[in-house]
Amino acid sequence: MSTLTDLRIAAVGDIHLGEDARGHYRKRLEGIEERADVLMLAGDLTRHGTLAEGRLVADEFRDLPLPVVAVLGNHDYHSDLQHEIAGELRDAGVTVLDDDWAVVECGGTKLGVVGGKGFGGGFAGKCASEFGEREIKDLVRHTRLIAEAWQVALKEVQADHRVVLSHYSPVKETLEGEPLEIYPFLGSYLLAEAVDTAGADLILHGHAHKGSEKGMTPGGIRVRNVALPVIGRAYAVYCLAMNGE
């Protein structure tokens, strides 16, 4: 049972909406305002990252009776139209994070949301490093810059609670079930390190369809993989107790 003092966060990722899904997801959101205070979308909202799919996603989430915060995923980047897709979502009233932050007012509480797509590279001791060929250095640098931006955003945002929203995973635990060989393509420990340094109440991500729902950073911050195939339901709801309660 949730209490009046809980902040209820609905979350889902990897919905991969294509033209044949028009209207289907919207139906699953009926009554969501009774169950949650905010909805977070953890990327891979489209299948091919086309503008038509981006518009379809925007229509599915347009003018919902609760705030919606989203990040994009690798599929949403596939057609190099990520900025246009983000624009369509914003026009539909969705807050889209791109390595920055937003504050959502939820029943008198300020919820700070920080994040973006994230990226890969692997996990401590078994990861790529900024060494060798330009292509490898670029990959790791890309993730490092993202992690640095999140750390800055977490320090800047003024809110009662802070949640990090990502597509890629910050930890290995929520990848359990995926082949070990592809872990470096599924996330990076640099993301977790940045969040542990700056602090947050919860990290939400998607991307790993065969992974596990629940994990934790080395610093003890709860991590939830909300990829649709992992949670197996329209959305998961996580309740954060209000300050000190």
């Binding site: 949730s2 609905a10 169950r35 329209a234 998961a236 107790a241």
Partner: peptide
């Protein structure tokens, strides 16, 4: 085919 129609149970993080 993944059928994800029901929202499911809440989790309390305390």
């Amino acid at each position: 085919i993944l059928d994800a129609s029901a929202p499911g149970e809440d989790e309390h993080l305390d």
